[in-house]
């Protein structure tokens, strides 16, 4: 007869079971959503066979098309601007002697992470309402600026981490070898911080693409993005078309986050 399981210092009874349950809870709802996006029937609880019909339905839906277009236009612009701004700010806040105003700059950069999104959203609604009245401009730029602002901290974090992990002596060596500050930046700093910039921009893209609350409050009529379009639809009768759109968005996020994960691993 086998002896009882050997005593392990690390093991606590029941913890592994809860952990597995926890991972199941994290993934089961999403998985079910994905599976039912391929359901042939319109029911969301009864499986009636495999089909792509809801994907093609979503593809042909003009509302979805325009929301997708808006989402991409905003996310591409916002992540680009946020990455450039965050890269500059990271260069200006890392690897330097502490200077006056540095704490204030950190607070500003992290503000979008600390203030509840709903608060920022209504504050932006108020401000942009005034500007809209004054300038009569109703375009997507409001959304792009708002998204740029809250994407900055997400782009900033990986870039800053990358810079802080970089050996200061490398730039000192470049200067020692007759590189002017600009050439040292172009030839040494920038290539070395590139994985951080890439990760930062992708993170910003995902964050912008997924945003619901701020977009919902800032958008003018007809400026729905995919998430706000979905939020509106959830109040009506839900068709599996929603599942199809969700699945596509999920796949985009998972792919991008995986790439970031791999980028970070190759660094170490």
């Amino acid at each position: 007869m086998l002896p009882k399981k050997r005593f392990s210092v690390r093991r606590l009874p029941g913890f592994a079971v809860i952990a597995i349950a926890c991972f199941t809870l994290l993934y089961a709802p999403i998985m079910i959503l994905v599976v039912y996006s391929f359901n042939a029937g319109s029911s969301i609880a009864v499986w009636e066979g495999f089909s792509w019909q809801w994907y093609s339905a979503a593809w042909d839906n003009e509302m979805v098309q325009s929301a997708t277009f808006n989402s991409l236009v905003i996310a591409i612009q916002a992540s680009l601007y946020a990455t450039v701004l965050a890269t500059m700010a990271a260069l200006g806040t890392t690897r330097t002697k502490p200077y006056r105003g540095q704490t204030a700059i950190y607070t500003m950069i992290n503000q979008p992470l600390m203030v509840p999104e709903i608060v920022t959203a209504v504050a932006l609604l108020i401000c942009f309402a005034v500007i809209k009245q004054l300038t009569d401009y109703q375009g997507l730029m409001y959304l792009v600026i708002a998204h740029t602002a809250f994407c900055i901290p997400f782009a900033y974090l990986p870039i800053r981490a990358r810079l802080e992990g970089m050996d200061r002596a490398l730039e000192t060596a470049a200067a020692d070898l007759y590189a002017t500050p600009w050439r040292s930046f172009r030839q040494v700093t920038l290539p070395l911080m590139w994985p951080g910039i890439l990760a930062g921009s992708m993170l910003a893209f995902v964050i912008s693409l997924d945003d619901v609350v701020i977009t919902e409050f800032v958008k003018s009529a007809g400026q729905d993005t995919l998430p706000t379009y979905m939020l509106g639809q959830l109040r009506r009768v839900i068709t599996p078309e929603m599942h199809a759109i969700s699945t596509v968005l999920l796949v985009v996020s998972v792919v991008i986050v995986s790439v970031i994960f791999i980028l970070n691993r190759s660094k170490n």
């Binding site: 050996d167 002596a169 490398l170 000192t172 060596a173 200067a175 020692d176 070898l177 007759y178 590189a179 002017t180 500050p181 040292s184």
Partner: peptide, 14 residues
């Protein structure tokens, strides 16, 4: 440093 005709071998090699 980039205008000084002096070069350094760094402790960490850099």
């Amino acid at each position: 440093p980039f205008k000084r005709p002096v070069n350094t071998v760094f402790q960490s090699y850099a």
